[in-house]
């Protein structure tokens, strides 16, 4: 009995079990899945797009596709979170393709991290560092950006990334390595501004 009660607790139930309960008409499962999945999807989409409003649109569309897929969901075929990240990835890719690709401009559009006369010695606040990293991420090719965000921001393993991106594990390793090299090069010119380039 306690085991059954625990299995029915939306806070601890696995994603797949909640999705099955959602498909069976349980409104508590809808709420639990929303609370669990939307923040993760939002964080990923926001890093991918660099735009919160666009990211919200993407997340809402991805979750809508999940709700529609729920009645026909086949148990054990795919993890719910992996499936959702794949949908978010594809939607973000579509949006990025619609944009005019201007990497240099995107980097230039990042907030100035410090005024040369005032802030160089005082260091930068965390928001400036994040803005600079986000601008550098925006400058990467789409696939490299996806791989490095999934690996180093979202904390996915390489096999999980391979499943999300529908590529091999070696390709994932190659993409993340190239992405990190590119980010290092992009940020090299701003090393002092970012507060990690000073030699002791």
């Amino acid at each position: 009995m306690p085991r059954d009660m625990q299995a029915e607790d939306p806070a601890t139930a696995p994603d797949e079990a909640l999705l099955a309960r959602y498909a069976a008409g349980d409104p508590a499962a809808a709420r639990a899945l929303t609370l669990r999945l939307v923040p993760r999807a939002m964080g990923y989409a926001a890093r991918m797009l660099g735009d919160g409003a666009e990211a919200e649109d993407v997340v809402q569309e991805a979750m809508l596709r999940l709700w529609r897929a729920a009645p026909g969901w086949r148990a054990g075929e795919a993890q719910v979170s992996t499936w959702l990240y794949r949908v978010v990835t594809n939607l973000c890719t579509d949006r990025l393709r619609q944009r005019k690709r201007r990497p240099a401009a995107a980097l230039d559009e990042a907030p100035e991290v410090a005024d040369g006369a005032q802030g160089a010695e005082a260091g930068l606040i965390e928001a400036d560092r994040m803005a600079a990293l986000q601008a550098a991420l925006d400058a990467l090719p789409d696939r490299q950006r996806q791989a490095v965000i999934l690996r180093h921001i979202e904390g996915f393993t390489n096999p999980e990334i391979a499943e999300v991106m529908d590529i091999g594990i070696e390709a994932v390793e190659s993409l993340t390595a190239r992405a990190k090299r590119a980010l290092t090069a992009i940020l090299a010119g701003r090393r002092e501004e970012l507060g990690y380039g000073e030699e002791d």
């Binding site: 959602y22 498909a23 069976a24 008409g25 409104p27 929303t34 809402q60 809508l64 729920a70």
Partner: peptide
């Protein structure tokens, strides 16, 4: 998102 979920829930 929650409104979508409830609207499309079987």
């Amino acid at each position: 998102v929650l409104a979508d979920a409830l609207a499309h829930q079987p």
